[in-house]
């Protein structure tokens, strides 16, 4: 069954949605959209390093994404004006990554695969990485769920309940780095943040509790992945952008649905 590239692609997309859905909810709730962008863009630098030192792409992106996520989260903890700082970090990480990759011989042709994903070329070992990473993230979030939610509502409230908001921030930072490493093959560095934010934002229209929103975000993410794959085959469009485009269409429909329901 796994011999079929389409089945592998579908499994990769669903695996990513499983982790990106709940994590994306936190990205939306905590207004970390740019944070996700900065981490994802840094992944290109990770790809360059991995190629230069013959490491696995997963290890390279995971390492650099983790470094970037930790940097950003430390700066945020010190009260920097995050808007500008993140803008600087996100785009310079991308620029340096692109320059670094240009030095690595023979990769220039493949660059598009890392920027926009190459889900149709997902191998069996890629699948193992994707599902292992996604399961880890999901387990981590499930384990810390209540604490994460409380810290997201109010750090004071969390601390008064004996929780440590800094630790919960670190949990999200770790999860984000893993998701970036998992997602680069599926939707590519430029569209990872979209895979986090769009399904979660679309899920908001249907949900009355945080748990429901996380579940809907998984379903919408998975539907986008499958729909995008189908569209990519049917219309011969690039797979990664097609997945995000389907997510965007679902988002637009969800927002209209939400607006209608509010008026009713």
């Amino acid at each position: 069954m796994l011999d079929d590239f389409l089945i592998r692609a579908a499994l990769a997309g669903v695996g990513l949605a499983l982790a990106a859905g709940p994590l994306g909810c936190f990205v939306v709730w905590r207004r970390m959209a740019y944070f996700g962008d900065a981490t994802a863009h840094a992944a290109i630098l990770g790809v360059a390093l991995a190629l230069a030192f013959s490491l696995s792409i997963f290890a390279g992106t995971l390492g650099v994404a983790l470094l970037m996520a930790l940097t950003v989260s430390t700066l945020a903890g010190r009260g920097w004006a995050m808007d500008t700082t993140l803008g600087v970090l996100a785009h310079s990480a991308l620029a340096f990554g692109l320059i670094a990759i240009s030095f690595v011989h023979g990769v220039r042709v493949d660059l598009e695969a890392y920027l926009f994903g190459d889900i149709l070329a997902v191998s069996r070992s890629d699948l193992v990485f994707i599902w292992t990473g996604a399961t880890l993230v999901l387990a981590l979030l499930a384990w810390r769920w209540s604490a994460l939610l409380t810290a997201t509502l109010s750090e004071d409230l969390a601390q008064a309940s004996g929780l440590n908001p800094a630790r919960e921030r670190l949990v999200l930072t770790l999860a984000l780095a893993v998701v970036v490493a998992v997602a680069i093959k599926v939707v590519g560095a430029l569209l990872i943040a979209a895979m986090l934010i769009i399904p979660a934002a679309a899920a908001r229209s249907f949900a009355r509790t945080p748990e429901a929103m996380a579940l809907f975000a998984i379903l919408i993410g998975a539907a986008s992945a499958l729909g995008g794959l189908f569209a990519s085959l049917h219309f011969d469009t690039p797979a990664g952008p097609s997945i995000i485009a389907v997510a965007a269409v679902i988002f637009a429909a969800a927002v209209s649905f939400g607006a209608l329901r509010q008026r009713a």
């Binding site: 939610l149 509502l153 409230l157 008064a160 929780l163 908001r204 945080p210 929103m213």
Partner: peptide, 28 residues
């Protein structure tokens, strides 16, 4: 055992939260 009522709590519009769910944070 401390019951804490913070000064102000802003719940972001993106976070759906019923009163019931809120009461069980972080302890059920």
């Amino acid at each position: 055992r401390i019951g804490y009522v913070p000064q102000k709590l802003h719940i972001d519009g993106s976070l759906p939260m019923t009163v019931r769910r809120f009461l069980s944070l972080p302890t059920r």
